[in-house]
Amino acid sequence: MRIIVDVEKCCGAGQCVLLAPKVFDQRDDGIVVLLDESPAPELHKAVREAACVCPGAAIRLEEQA
């Protein structure tokens, strides 16, 4: 899994940080900081949920089969 974040779309909700704090953080202005662009498999479920609920649709995932 590879994570791509679009900071222009990020609205700073922080939902991703609530769901996957090892993968996402926020700057002081709320904009997402990607801590780990290829997270370990045990984090994939939380990352997929973060991508789904992101209110800015700012998280894209590339998943290899």
């Binding site: 922080g14 940080v17 609530l18 002081d28 202005d29 709320g30």
Partner: peptide
């Protein structure tokens, strides 16, 4: 109001 991280913590 312009306090993103603190807001999230108080959630």
């Amino acid at each position: 109001w312009n306090m993103v991280k603190q807001t999230r913590m108080h959630r």
